[in-house]
């Protein structure tokens, strides 16, 4: 088999994995979306590669993109949890009864 194909979506996974860190800032939601999309696509592509590994090249891109996506997801979800916890604890401290009674 001489004519090797490039793995479909390998570069896409790499781009999305890297973009997930660049945009993980606004509450971490955008980064979460990008990371999860990258993970889902990469799972399909890994299945495709494992069926016949001789056909494709560009598996390293896929692996690096997958690692980037996992790290981005973990970081942005941690940040999202931090923000949620902050809202819950600080929101409990606000005197709601006084505000409502006014």
């Amino acid at each position: 088999m001489e004519n090797k194909q490039q793995l479909p979506n390998a570069t896409l996974v790499l781009i999305f994995g890297i973009v997930s860190i660049v945009t993980c800032f606004c509450y971490g939601i955008i980064g979460l979306i990008f990371g999860i999309v990258a993970l889902v696509i990469s799972k399909q592509s890994i299945k495709l590669y494992n069926e016949n590994p001789e056909l494709y090249y560009g598996y390293e891109n896929l692996k690096a993109g997958r690692i980037c996506a996992i790290v981005g997801i973990s970081l942005s979800s941690l940040y999202l949890l931090f923000i949620l916890a902050y809202i819950i604890f600080v929101g409990a401290l606000i005197p709601w009864t006084e505000i409502i009674n006014q």
Binding site: T11, L14, I15, G17, I18, I21, E60, N61, K63, A64, G65, I67, C68, V71, L75
Partner: peptide, 25 residues
């Protein structure tokens, strides 16, 4: 580096990008 890696397909581009990513984080 990502854009140029997609264009020219460097040999160890993916791993270098990974290390850049960790440095950034």
């Amino acid at each position: 580096y990502l854009v140029s890696h997609i264009y020219f397909d460097f040999k160890n581009g993916a791993s270098i990008l990974k290390y850049f990513y960790f440095l950034n984080i």
